[in-house]
Design a protein around this nucleic acid. Structure first.
Lengths: 136, 136
DNA sequence: TTCTTAAATTATATTTATTCCAAATTATAG
DNA sequence: CTATAATTTGGAATAAATATAATTTAAGAA
C-alpha cells in the first residue's frame, strides 16, 4: 500500500484487517465508490465484514483527511481516495464521474473578497461521456 | 409572481393552491431550501399541505426546469429557484450556501475535448463566511 | 353552469442510506 | 502477557425520499 493511504494510521488508530481491506480497495480507485460499493467489493474479495464497519471506517478516514467525501451524487455519498485537489466530469446520462487532474484556472469573483475567505474550490463539469455520446 | 416561476404551468400542469403557495415561497428565495424547509415555511404561513405534495411539486418543477435541484448538501437535496447558471460559496463552518451571480471564468481542461462533451459547469467555493470568521 | 376526467393531494406504507447502540472482540501500549 | 481503549458487529432506529391507492379537484367540454 502506498504512503498516501497509510497516513490514516497513527496514535489511537488501530490497524485492523477490516480497515486494511477497505484501504486496499480504495487505493488508486478512481470509481468514486459509495459505501455500498466498498462493502460489496471487500466482502467479495477478502472476507465478510459488517456494513457498520464500512461506514465507521469511511467516516474515520474522511475525518483523518485520508479520503474525500464527495457530495456529487444526490442519492448517496461517494468517496475519493485521491485527496489532491482536482475536479470532476459528470456524465448526465450514465452519472459516471471522471477525474480531472489537469489544472483548471478558476477566476475568483470580486464579491467574495469582502464577505468570504476562500480556501479552495471544486468544479463540476456537466456533459456526456464518449460512451453515452455514441449511443445517442 | 414573476414570470420566471410561472413557466412551470402549462398544458397538463394544474395551478393548485398548494403549488402556488410553494412557488410563492420559492420566489426570489436565496436560502437554497430543502423539502423540509419548504414544508415548514408553507404550512406555517399559508395552510396545511402534505409532505408528499412538497416532494411531488419540487420534482415536477425540477423536471420542468423551473427550479434547480442542488447536490451540495450531503444530507438532503436543496432547491434553487434561480435557474440562471451561477455558482456557490459554501461556508465550511455553518454550511450556509451563498449565490455567486458574478461571471466566473473557468478554463476548459484539454483532456475533456476528446472524451467528453461539456454543456456547463458549476463551481463550489469553500471557505468561511464573514459571520463565522468573526467567531474564530 | 354543470359534467367529465385526467391530474393532484393526501395519509400511509415502503425503500434506501446512514447512524446509533450495547455487547463481544481485538490491537496495541506497557 | 495483561489491561484497556478502540473496533467490530448485528440489529434497531432515523431520516430522506418514493410509491401506493383512495379521494379530491382544476380546467376544459358540453
Amino acid at each position: 500500500m502506498k504512503q498516501a493511504l497509510k497516513k490514516g494510521f497513527g496514535k489511537g488508530f488501530k490497524r485492523t484487517p477490516q480497515r486494511l481491506a477497505i484501504l486496499n480497495y480504495l487505493e488508486g480507485n478512481t470509481l468514486h465508490p459509495s459505501a455500498e460499493d466498498v462493502y460489496r467489493a471487500v466482502t467479495k474479495k477478502d472476507f465478510p465484514l459488517s456494513f457498520a464497519t464500512v461506514y465507521n471506517t469511511l467516516n474515520a478516514l474522511a475525518q483523518a483527511g485520508t479520503v474525500r467525501e464527495l457530495t456529487i451524487d444526490a442519492e448517496r455519498k461517494r468517496y475519493d481516495p485521491n485527496t489532491e485537489p482536482h475536479h470532476h466530469l459528470i456524465c448526465l446520462k450514465c452519472r459516471k464521474i471522471i477525474d480531472v487532474f489537469e489544472d483548471v484556472p478558476v477566476g475568483k469573483p470580486k464579491c467574495i473578497e469582502k464577505k468570504f475567505s476562500v480556501f479552495g474550490n471544486h468544479v463540476e463539469f456537466y456533459g456526456h461521456c464518449s460512451a453515452c455520446r455514441k449511443k445517442c
